[in-house]
Write a protein that binds this DNA or RNA. Structure first.
Lengths: 219, 219
DNA sequence: AAATATTTTTAGTCTTGTCTAAATTTTAAT
DNA sequence: ATTAAAATTTAGACAAGACTAAAAATATTT
């Protein structure tokens, strides 16, 4: 069994490990958890003893299959709770993260399985992120950042990269929601901004926004 | 804000304080939390500093109104989660305690208010215990232990004293549930056992059981 | 290739919450 | 009213998880 702190490390390392095929660096973990590198060194030694990751001094870490499974399970719980909060308890998608961060550490297999069933076994959370199955498998769908689309390309909004509440509230204000069709109308080379059509409205999107919105291209 | 550990102490002291009008003793708290008296002394000093209880060396403690409110709020959360688990997630009443013990420490006013609303603002938890309102008021209903009823007295099962899973499972096996009418048919002076009629069945009840089942007398 | 910068680790400290063992106070019994 | 017993507190220790500052290893520049 793992403490909440250990679980948070596993989750962070799992997320960081997806992008890089090399080991995850101490500093990267520290940054992601808003902690100090020395604290990370202490913790990864502990987790290496528990066989959930492999650690060679100065070489970063990578999760064992046991570690991956454990991490995926925490992410599964986090995302299922997020769906529950939005679907059953009238939370907005920008309000769920902090609460799910607490709920993901509750230890009760029956609890999370029943929540899963109550929700009808959802596959994606409110931000479009896939929910790992009980074995820890996580399906990666084909998606692209809005910023990579060319003029006249179109697709469906399927997720957000940054799920900070300011960004999500911005999307709400612009009436941009997951599942909506979006078409690139204009692109400005100068600042990377673009004009898109969504919901029959043309709106101007800054480069920063376009770098945070995932699109599933339709061909 | 309070740590989970502090919250557990407040809850324990609240429960112990209901029965005694004097201060709650260090040993009683230690026993209730399965901890040592010296640990309790440390913690109550800390809680006294936080103004949630008053403490005079060797004299035990009692909660301030602030402390009572905080404790009642934790108990409110615990009992609402228990209702949720039974009503929405197919938990049996003997399975809810440990999970609720974790869930009660989740910090999110919106979460618990929405759970309350989802459940239709219940007044009692699955064991018949009253749920405090948002201000921390807890209504005490008139109830008696089954063991205190005389022959031919009858009433409604409204709660359990001991809510250990073995006792609750025993009640399930005997088809005894809250809300059912119960009549005392025979009483045995020798061992305090009794025969009662419940659900058209006559069953024999040991003294230990009769001391753990609460009845609301009908007159 | 040497010098510099960055990253990582080590060593030592701190807080929270727990413990044991010993000392003190209160309560109960003779 | 002493003495014995029980309850409580103090003192000192420990584990978890964090920190700072300094040392060591790795990367990057020149």
């Amino acid at each position: 069994m793992f403490t909440s702190s250990e679980e948070n490390y596993l989750k962070a390392i799992f997320h960081l490990g997806i992008t890089s095929n090399k080991g995850v660096s101490t500093n990267a973990i520290a940054k992601s958890l808003h902690t100090k590198a020395s604290s990370v060194t202490d913790m990864i030694k502990k987790l290496a003893d528990k066989k959930v990751l492999v650690y060679k001094k100065y070489q970063g870490v990578s999760l064992t299959s046991e570690g991956k499974k454990t991490a995926a399970n925490i992410i599964r719980k986090h995302r299922l709770w997020e769906v529950f909060l939005v679907e059953k308890l009238n939370f907005n998608w920008d309000e769920v993260h902090d609460v799910a961060e607490q709920l993901e550490h509750i230890k009760s297999p029956k609890l999370i399985n029943e929540i899963d069933a109550l929700l009808g076994f959802p596959k994606y959370d409110p931000h479009g992120d896939p929910i790992p199955d009980k074995e820890g498998n996580l399906d990666q769908i084909e998606k692209s950042l809005l910023s990579t689309l060319a003029i006249n390309e179109f697709g469906i909004c399927v997720g957000v990269h940054d799920s900070s509440s300011t960004f999500l509230q911005f999307l709400d204000k612009q009436k941009i929601a997951l599942g909506q069709e979006i078409i690139v109308v204009e692109k400005e080379d100068f600042d990377g901004s673009m004009v898109v059509e969504i919901n029959k409205n043309k709106i101007s999107i800054s480069n920063k926004i376009a770098n945070n919105l995932y699109i599933k291209k339709s061909q």
